[in-house]
Design a protein around this nucleic acid. Structure first.
Lengths: 194, 194
DNA sequence: CACATCATGTAACCAGTTACATGATTGG
DNA sequence: CCAATCATGTAACTGGTTACATGATGTG
């Protein structure tokens, strides 16, 4: 049950509403841990029942009121405890790979199209993550930022997300090129080094 | 519902028993799509009910009898149809990243240990995948193999798995080095290029 | 004789997805 | 006035994990 801890982590630095969290999980956080709004609202209710977070009502001018959520001491302790446990290994799990594996019985042109589509999306995400990284470290160089910040965690995680997307882009592009070269009888391109 | 299709794909080339499949999902297939034996047996029952696979009993000397499963024509058609649909984007979802994100409130030494552990596992998996690739292409060069085989799918997928594990190893090692350098007051190492 | 491997599952629970539901406010 | 965004959820279903259960055979 790591969604719970992903939520606690997201609340570590900011006081957020359920809505804010849903947005964060669709963007920043979502780049390494995805969850739907419905899942979040359910989890938030459970977390509040368990006393790991508390909410305070904030009235807004010309907006519906919102509940800003904060970690309690118990929530903080829970997070610290969680971080010390050994993490289970993560798996690559990708529908597209299943389809490529079944290329033999698939429509190759449709597959190529999808590979290129996924490559483009990955490139866009990598770009967003790159911008987030420069935003985080500000005017400093990476090494200087990592040496001095007291929250290196988010930066490190963001680097991983970026590597992941870059790797995905590289592979998708190459795989599409390979399949295209095969159907056209052209020479197979090598996998670009990175 | 892509487990169903992952199973069909695994049966595309070989006739397998439930037990064989469970092993394959723990090894080869599991490197890009993981499933537990329980999930598989449940899915197999459903697939047979749906008429997408059939089993034939095989008696063995000095072994319990097993049921070898094969794709039916309907199963093949289902797979072809699935491959043409657009695949939903895959997410990176990793407990370890949640922990690193929460580094601020975690035991840094414990985290470093885990990062190094995960790096070692990733390196081992990458090695296995590399061996699988050389096994698949035999004496040929990659380009020659990909140009001539009629099943490039498994090879391409395997390359992706290897890239993923290499990327994971690179990052885990670097992140551990960064955290270690911070606590020791040493200079932060750069992320190695690849 | 004990442990690993072959071979197959069931039951209970937890996590995640899809579809639906509601109502206010802001910007074009 | 309509669409987008802010803000919060519920209900029904599907998918996945953990723990348990059974029994045969091969290896040290």
């Amino acid at each position: 049950m790591a969604l719970r801890h992903a939520v606690l982590t997201a609340l570590l630095d900011n006081e957020l509403s359920g809505y804010d969290l849903a947005k964060a999980f669709g963007e920043k956080v979502g780049l390494f841990w995805h969850a739907s709004p419905q899942q979040l609202y359910a989890e938030l209710a459970r977390l509040e029942d368990a006393g790991l977070i508390t909410g305070r009502e904030v009235l807004q001018r010309r907006r519906p009121p919102k509940r800003l959520l904060t970690l309690t001491d118990a929530g903080l302790a829970e997070l610290t405890h969680f971080a010390a446990e050994s993490a289970k290994p993560s798996f690559l799990r990708d529908e597209l790979l299943v389809k490529v594996h079944a290329e033999r019985v698939a429509d190759t042109d449709a597959l190529i199209e999808q590979l290129e589509d996924h490559a483009a999306r990955a490139a866009a995400k990598a770009q967003v993550l790159g911008d987030m990284l420069t935003g985080l470290r500000g005017p400093k160089h990476e090494a200087a930022y990592l040496a001095t910040t007291n929250t290196p965690g988010p930066y490190l995680v963001c680097v991983r997300g970026r590597l992941f997307e870059q790797e995905k882009q590289t592979w998708c592009t190459w795989a599409a090129d390979v399949l295209r070269a095969r159907t056209a009888g052209r020479p197979i391109p090598p996998l670009p080094p990175r």
